[in-house]
Design a binder for these strands. Structure first.
Length: 478
DNA sequence: TGAAATGTTGGGGCG
DNA sequence: ACGCCCCAACATTTC
């Protein structure tokens, strides 16, 4: 084979099926070098997650295994992407670089100068979303900042699924001649995590998707708010599809999920099942919405989307922040999910809203503290979706809940963990607390002595926050 | 993808 | 039998 190779650079698309950039590379007819670059800057980030990195390593291993069906291997290199790529181009005489676009500010900045710095054909493809940023705009050409009209237009823009590409061993470059460090071990990357890492295999993720769409999705509308104890180990808990970590690394594509759901929707379902399916798809749309937002408004990454609350006096309360992180606030409905997060790298969306409201509204601590903590522990931690959720809860974001909408932890607890099963599972100290007091153990005559009293009084905190937000609104914009 | 404060209504206890 | 009060239940307004 005398043709020069092309490089396919895996980033957040660790799958072989329905991978736009990879398939384009294959279709080019040149032998493909599958590459992953471990960028040491990721590990220096204060948003770095040991668990997510462990999951990424497993995912690289899974891709490598699938590649072995084609006598191919994943080439792994460590370092600055620009230098790695130019070095590799020199070594292999590659004529093209293919990858799928990543829309976070970090990735956009990393990728924008590639074409100028590399002397070869650089091809970026839209793959991570059903509709890429810029594809859903208002008639006046500006981006949507409210979810509902975005979703309406997004739905109208969906295009039919495209056909797949057949691969063979002829499509891949023999990299045995090139230096390949291979996939590093956890020890080599100094990964420390006790979180049980779910399977990162593409086929496993696909079967999970199929299984979920088959039946559990029909009850999503009602079950989505259930506080699921451990979706890794308990198949009875079906409220969440628990696929977000697969979308995070692109082990599943949103197209695979969307079309699986939509095929089922059109296939003679009851009205309530259809409604549930629509709601589930709507969560995919939220993911796209927030990625579009971060692309069009990159400042949201480290700043309020709206400057309305730039003057807000967030509290500095390191001990209270620590209590929140440790699950020791004295509010069971806060502490249970915070402990769950550290234990399994996941918490239900409802719980995310409750603990986010508590940090920002009850403790009046900056949403960025919570956003960072979530990124450090969530297996599905995605910069755009996580940021969007936090700014929504804090009231600083696009389409945010109004500042006066403050969750009452106790009523949320009674509503979504009626019997207290979720609380008892994650807070063993409360094992013997009767149902009557499980949501507010401080009201017992003799509360468990090994569980803290509430670090803040909700009624007092609510008033404090209303006043702080009101004061910030009254500050004239600069 | 709220909750608290305030307003309204109507049934029941009771003198 | 009547008026008064209490308050649950629901509705509306406000934050």
């Amino acid at each position: 084979m005398s043709q020069p190779p092309v490089i396919f650079w895996f980033r957040r698309d660790l799958r072989l099926d329905d991978n736009t950039g990879l398939h384009e590379a294959i279709k080019s007819g040149h032998p493909v070098i599958p590459l992953y670059i471990i960028d040491p800057r990721i590990r220096q980030s204060d948003r770095y997650s040991h668990a997510r990195m462990a999951f990424l390593l497993d995912s690289m291993e899974a891709v490598n295994q699938r590649l072995s069906d084609y006598n191919a291997h994943l080439l792994v290199r460590h370092g600055n992407p620009h230098s790695i790529l130019s070095e590799l181009i020199q070594q292999t005489n590659a004529s093209g670089l293919y990858f799928n676009a990543d829309y976070t500010p970090f990735a956009v900045k990393r990728d924008e100068t590639l074409q100028d710095n590399l002397s070869i054909d650089v091809r970026s493809f839209d793959d991570a979303l059903l509709i890429p940023p810029g594809g859903v705009m208002k008639d006046d050409g500006t981006p949507y900042v409210v979810y509902t009209p975005f979703k309406k237009r997004w739905n109208d823009k969906i295009k039919p699924a495209t056909s797949t590409v057949e691969m063979s061993s002829d499509n891949f470059y023999n990299i045995s001649e090139i230096e390949n460090v291979g996939i590093p071990s956890r020890e080599q990357l100094e990964i420390q995590t006790n979180i049980p890492i779910p399977s990162a295999k593409e086929t496993y993720a696909q079967s999970k998707l199929t299984h979920y769409i088959k039946s559990a999705i029909n009850a999503y509308d009602t079950d989505r708010n259930h506080l699921t104890i451990d979706p890794f180990n308990d198949d009875r808990q079906t409220g969440s599809s628990f696929l977000s970590h697969y979308f995070r690394l692109g082990i599943l594509s949103p197209r695979q999920a969307y079309w699986a759901a939509r095929d089922k929707y059109g296939n003679n379902q009851s009205e309530s099942a259809q409604q549930s399916i629509a709601t589930w798809v709507s969560e995919l749309t939220w993911r796209e919405f927030y990625m579009h937002i971060m692309y069009h408004f990159p400042h949201v990454d480290r700043n309020n989307f709206r400057d309305t609350y730039d003057a807000l006096k967030w509290r500095s309360a390191p001990e209270e922040l620590q209590a929140w992180k440790d699950g020791l606030t004295g509010y069971p409905i806060i502490d249970a999910p915070m402990r769950q997060l550290r234990a399994i790298g996941w918490m239900p969306n409802r719980a995310r809203m409750i603990v986010a409201s508590f940090l920002t509204k009850d403790l009046l601590i900056h949403w960025q503290e919570g956003e960072r903590h979530f990124m450090q522990y969530l297996l599905d931690g995605d910069p755009a979706a996580n940021n969007g959720g936090w700014q929504w809860a804090a009231g600083t974001g696009t389409d945010a809940q109004p500042y006066f909408r403050i969750f009452n932890p106790t009523s949320q607890s009674k509503k979504f963990d009626k019997d207290g099963d979720y609380i008892r599972h994650w807070i063993p100290e409360l094992n013997n607390v009767p149902k009557k007091y499980i949501h507010e153990p401080w009201k017992m005559d003799a509360p468990p002595t090994n569980y803290p009293a509430p670090i803040v009084d909700h009624k007092f905190a609510r008033k404090r926050t209303l006043e702080a937000f009101k004061a910030a609104r009254e500050v004239e914009p600069a």
